[in-house]
Design a protein around this nucleic acid. Structure first.
Lengths: 233, 233
DNA sequence: ACGTCGTTTCGGCCCCGGCCGAACCGTTCC
DNA sequence: GGAACGGTTCGGCCGGGGCCGAAACGACGT
């Protein structure tokens, strides 16, 4: 596919809205996306087919539902990068609602399937500070780190690290912080754990997260993440 | 600017052709681009205005000429990334001309203002092997490296490394090799030196480079780059 | 001063593609 | 079986935007 044809997939407001919504890493149904973007179901259906055809989205049919999600992490990164570029130098948001959403996402959000925003960066820093990760020609999990993960009962997928599977740790550049945070299978496992154990919870239907009181404590006790790092300003 | 409006800039075959051509890092005139893309000068003029308005291109007026180039390195990276994504899984080129061009670009090419392709990766590896660069939380020039650059009379711009100026070394992911090569002010200086001293020369009007015999010798003597790394296959 | 050349502006043409509603299909629930 | 529901297909409408040619503009060379 040519560059132009590919870019055209994201060049429509409705399709762009779909992709932005899907950045939360969850699978949405066709109807949810249609309502979210304010178009008729028939319109949404055609858009989804094109996005899937173009390799940006993956679908999963269940009964009468059509679930779609971003095809993989690289798509999520690409869309975040493009958005960051498009929005650079953008004027301050004009509505309070918008300002609140942006501020919440800057504080803590999901980036496809892992943690981003100040929370994501703080966790990455903590893992490096404690020697659980090392930064030598790319991030790697240390021996110490493996032991810690086992201790915390944070499980990586069985095939993690094998040839062909997704890398265990992948650094991912954060557009709000301009800092790297932890992606890859480890990033996904950490995010899943944080949601499962109610360290964080989703705010509304978007990508923004709130760190719960017990989460604040857990992150501090386990990783030394300072509460200020993720508190509302 | 919204994601959709931004993507729309690249979603037109003519504008995409302009950006791809400009990936060679040089400044082209409006007329050259028009002929290159096969459109009327008036059409090209409108496209250029939109790309500049959108921050993708920078212009410089000289007399009756309008020179344009990519706005900066981040734009070049963005376009290379998008192209790589769009072309993933693309079938083998259908024409001999196309196959030749791709193979030449994979061997050695410019990426905006520095060296890429197998040549770029080989040079980056050589700099690391010889301890002229170190990879510690990002690439940095070592003491040894500074001395070597001075010895070779390869000059960095006076403000290099100062706050606000472009970083001295920036690793840049190569889409053909899936390996990092050297960008930033150092990458630009190395590329300029290689062209000035006729270690490499441009093939035709594109981004592809040929390593000259004296270049092969110089790269081997100075950096230990093996001739096979950049010879035609 | 005059012609040439690179570029820009404008008017007008035309097609691509996004949108909807209506009809249809398959699943689920009663 | 029938009704409700999510999703899809199709036909038709409509606007945006890419294209060109004509005309104008400004720089340059003679």
């Amino acid at each position: 596919m040519s560059l132009a044809r590919f870019a055209a997939l994201l060049a429509d407001p409705t399709r762009a809205a779909f992709c932005t919504a899907l950045l939360d890493g969850r699978a949405w149904t066709a109807g949810e996306l249609a309502r979210h973007a304010g178009v008729a179901p028939s319109t949404a259906s055609e858009h989804l087919s094109r996005l899937i055809e173009g390799g940006l989205l993956a679908e999963e049919r269940q009964g009468r539902h059509r679930y779609v999600r971003l095809a993989d992490q690289t798509v999520a990164t690409l869309i975040e990068d493009l958005t960051a570029f498009a929005e650079r130098g953008a004027p301050a948001p004009r509505t309070l609602r918008e300002a609140t959403r942006l501020s919440a996402e800057a504080r803590a959000r999901t980036c496809y399937d892992h943690l981003a925003g100040r929370l994501g960066v703080a966790v990455a820093d903590a893992l490096l500070d404690r020697g659980l990760l090392a930064d030598e020609a790319g991030l790697t999990v240390t021996e110490h780190g493996r032991a810690w993960l086992a201790e915390q009962a944070i499980e990586l997928p069985p095939r993690a690290g094998r040839r062909g599977a997704r890398p265990v740790v992948r650094s991912c550049l954060d557009w709000t912080e301009r800092r790297t945070h932890v992606g890859g299978a480890l990033g996904a496992a950490l995010c899943r754990t944080a949601l499962d154990r109610a360290w964080v919870e989703r705010i509304g239907s978007g990508r923004a997260l709130r760190v719960t009181p017990s989460g604040t404590r857990a992150l501090h006790d386990l990783l030394g993440v300072r509460p200020e790092a993720t508190a509302a300003r």
